[in-house]
Design a protein around this nucleic acid. Structure first.
Length: 228
DNA sequence: CCGTGATCATGC
DNA sequence: GCATGATCACGG
């Protein structure tokens, strides 16, 4: 089953709010999509399920999910207290041709300009079929958050361009980190080495640390209380 | 191989 | 316990 692409932000929000509270089993049955026993072999299954229901532009383009609306969709697994269980992948880390690349025009800033967060139950003790979708959060980074991300991005990209990519660990960056992002350890891509030469290294990606996404989720709880 | 969707699972 | 580094599936 293919659902139409939402033509407005409000339509997208309405659909996201509609699906809140339903289980993965119910949604998969409605869309006629088979449910895996677990996510071991299909780690992106939940993300694809929600994308399909919300009518996101399918494909693997380096574009936002809802191009016309300028909105990126992210499902985020949370525990019983609503805290993130995983970091959040943002985009591939460019390891070459970074001359003149700045934060303002970076893929990270672009992707995170406007995000529709969909919390999902991620507790592995709950059978996949029974796990439920949470209430959507439409988020834009505030000035402080953008500054935090920019600072981390600049520190990390400095290392990449200066040939220190092999020295980067996930411990760098306060809220944004760089980690491997590949099919397996055999995947290699070009990068700048210690002496400015071209080396082969594992592809990397930018990820948001849990401390950052937790702030987004908690802030939304606060504002919903205040608005009552 | 790259980029999309991410979570797994071992080491600390 | 939990984060880091590794990995799974798929379209192009």
């Amino acid at each position: 089953m293919i659902l139409s692409i939402p033509t407005s932000e409000q339509e997208l929000l309405n659909r996201a709010e509609l699906v809140a509270g339903y289980s993965f089993g119910e949604i998969a049955q409605y869309l006629n999509i088979p449910i895996p026993a677990n996510l071991n072999k299909q780690k992106g299954w939940v993300g694809n399920l929600i994308e399909t229901f919300l009518g996101a532009n399918a494909g693997s383009k380096a574009e936002r999910d809802f191009v016309k609306l300028g909105i990126e969709l992210k499902t985020i697994p949370v525990d019983k207290q609503g805290k993130p269980l995983e970091t959040t992948f943002v985009s591939v880390t460019p390891l070459m041709a970074n001359h003149g690349v700045i934060w303002e025009t970076s893929h990270v800033k672009y992707k995170l300009a406007k995000v529709l967060w969909i919390p999902i139950e991620g507790d592995r003790t709950i059978p996949l079929v029974e796990r439920k979708v949470g209430k959507p959060i439409l988020w834009e980074p505030n000035q402080e958050q953008e500054q935090q991300l920019k600072q981390d991005w600049e520190e990390l990209m400095d290392m990449v361009t200066l040939g220190k990519v092999e020295k980067i660990t996930a411990r760098y960056g306060t809220y944004l980190q760089i980690r491997p992002k590949a099919a397996n350890g055999k995947a290699l891509t070009e990068a700048i080495g210690e002496n400015g030469q071209i080396i082969l290294t594992r592809p990397r990606g930018f990820y948001l640390k849990k401390t950052f996404t937790m702030q987004i989720l908690q802030a939304s709880i606060c504002s919903s209380h205040q608005s009552k």
